[in-house]
Write a protein that binds this DNA or RNA. Structure first.
Lengths: 143, 143
DNA sequence: TTCTAAATTTGTACTCAATACAAATAAGTA
DNA sequence: TACTTATTTGTATTGAGTACAAATTTAGAA
């Protein structure tokens, strides 16, 4: 899947983020690789074509994106933050065996949200996380 | 809130965990302090009365509890794992300002779960995480 | 175009939650 | 008792993520 530079810069602009070579490269990576990568995965894949790229820039940029809601940061995995570019809201499934993260189409129930609002909590964001075994790992283990 | 030793040992036994002085102390802490503590908080509070307690024991014990579903491990906060003893399933709210975690009574919608099962994902556990501002932080910031 | 200030990136040093691991201790069993 | 297993401890280490100041790039004015 290929994304054009105008696609990227307009998405950045829509979230008030000015473009730069690094930001475009990182956002392109997120748009083209829907595998919920970590900062380190992104750094390691981009360093080949961007030899002066710094790890700090990758971290800074990802949090700039996340703070401006241009991507979302997933805390489903205890040891690494994963980043997710996606148009529609959805839930995530983490396989406890292989560690892969899968998207799950989600119809968010308003029941839970209203109970949070009832407790005077001002909800800005909601995440639904599943854990278990993906189909491949389940087949291997036969359990 | 005070919990008796038989309360603790029977809860451990119900999850196949043999009692020890350290395990009882840590489980007691979780039962009596429903503040979603981190391993470090537990260690720092228990070390006063248990001067030979080791950090490693706290980590090992908490994961022993979590692996046997005697408590649950929360990944809502990116930097620390929080632990939660609770009888009923519920969602969690993390305040992005003060960092406190609040319980939210949850009626889990079966709609989302079925979409995960449809994707042949074998769900074992589900978490609902909210982020936003708690009432106190919201009042201070007036936004 | 050139100058200047602001924004962005870079690299190094560092923090700190969490883990690995082997020695020490405690508990169960014959 | 002696022997075996389970548990705990302390030290050393890992590794994701951050702090920070220097270097570089960009934007806008003159």
């Amino acid at each position: 899947m290929t994304v054009t530079v105008p696609d990227i810069t307009s998405h950045l602009a829509a979230h008030g983020i000015r473009p730069s070579a690094q930001r475009i490269a990182i956002m392109r990576y997120l748009m083209e690789n829907r595998v919920h990568p970590t900062a380190d995965m992104i750094y390691n894949d981009l360093i080949a074509d961007n030899p002066t790229l710094s790890r700090t820039t990758v971290y800074n940029t990802l949090w700039l994106f996340a703070d401006n809601h241009a991507v979302s940061a997933l805390t489903i995995d205890r040891t690494n933050t994963h980043f997710d570019y996606s148009e529609k809201p959805h839930a995530h499934f983490l396989c406890r065996c292989c560690g892969k993260i899968f998207d799950v189409p989600a119809i968010i129930s308003p029941i839970v949200q209203s109970s949070a609002e009832h407790a005077k909590l001002h909800v800005e964001h909601m995440d639904i996380h599943y854990t278990g075994l993906c189909n491949d790992c389940h087949s291997i283990r036969q359990n």
